[in-house]
Amino acid sequence: MLFDTDPIGRRVALAAGVGVAATIAGALARPDIVGRASERLGLYQPDRSETWRDTLAVQLRVDAQAGPGRAVFFGDSHVAGLDVASVTTGALNFGIGGDTVRSLAFRLRFYETAKTARAAVIAVGLNELAGASPERAADMFDDVLKAIAAPQICVCSVFPVDLTMPSVIAKFGRDMNHRIADFNERIAARTAAHKAIFLQSLPQAGGLPEIWHGGDGVHLNATGYKIWASRLRDCPVLQA
């Protein structure tokens, strides 16, 4: 009996349209298999950390075991910290901290559940906006939508940040919430064109209140997550 010892590397190779044997060698136990194989194929993005690559490898092992009809959540650290089981049954959390629109579009090609899920939730964009204009970030978002074949898709707005905190201003700039609002408007239009649902995750006006974040002005605390989870539960995409 033959065993497929490298399903992750095989997916990377197939995504580029080349043979497995000519491209991938090694076993699933090698945590760098995704990064190295992708580098050879000209697909790997050097701005992603080793932790990001290792997390992707682990998630693809979970993805390989998941059957069709699941609800999948993709995105950055906001998604990674969400209790998806409290939102809907049969949910899988594929959030990775530090994810950008571009890196999410890159990794989506490797997930079988992006094709077989009953519903997909997307929440990404803040990290992209730290270095890209809202227009450019929204243009890249089209690649995310095209990579998901699930019949029901919910796209979440990017949360505002707390600009009363000097550390947040230093990292993102004083106009960050304006750029976030601009980006949200752009992806809302693209979501509608894709016949998906756009969800206003949190109120935009006034920035992210201190009572909703964990002290860094960016990431939600338990209260903030409860509000977002409640809005997600009301989304028609996740009520099937």
Rank of each mutant, 00 (worst) to 15 (best):
T23H: 02
R107Y: 01
D54M: 11
F106C: 06
G19L: 11
A37L: 04
R107G: 06
K115H: 12
P68G: 05
A85Q: 11
V34P: 00
A64R: 10
R61M: 12
R118K: 10
G75I: 11
V79H: 05
R70V: 15
G26D: 13
R118N: 09
R61D: 11
R109L: 07
F73V: 03
R109A: 12
D83R: 11
R70M: 09
G42F: 07
S49F: 11
V62C: 04
T100H: 02
S77Y: 04
N127Y: 01
V20D: 13
L129Q: 01
A138T: 12
L60H: 01
A138W: 14
L129A: 00
L60F: 00
A132D: 11
G42C: 10
G35P: 00
A119Q: 06
E50Q: 13
D32W: 12
A120F: 05
W52D: 00
G97H: 04
V124K: 07
L126E: 00
T23R: 03
G75K: 05
G81F: 07
S133M: 05
A117G: 00
R30M: 11
R53P: 00
G19K: 14
E39V: 05
G67N: 06
R109M: 10
G35S: 12
T51V: 14
L41V: 10
S49D: 06
L126G: 05
F141T: 12
R40G: 09
F73S: 05
P134S: 08
V20F: 15
T88C: 06
D54T: 08
L41F: 09
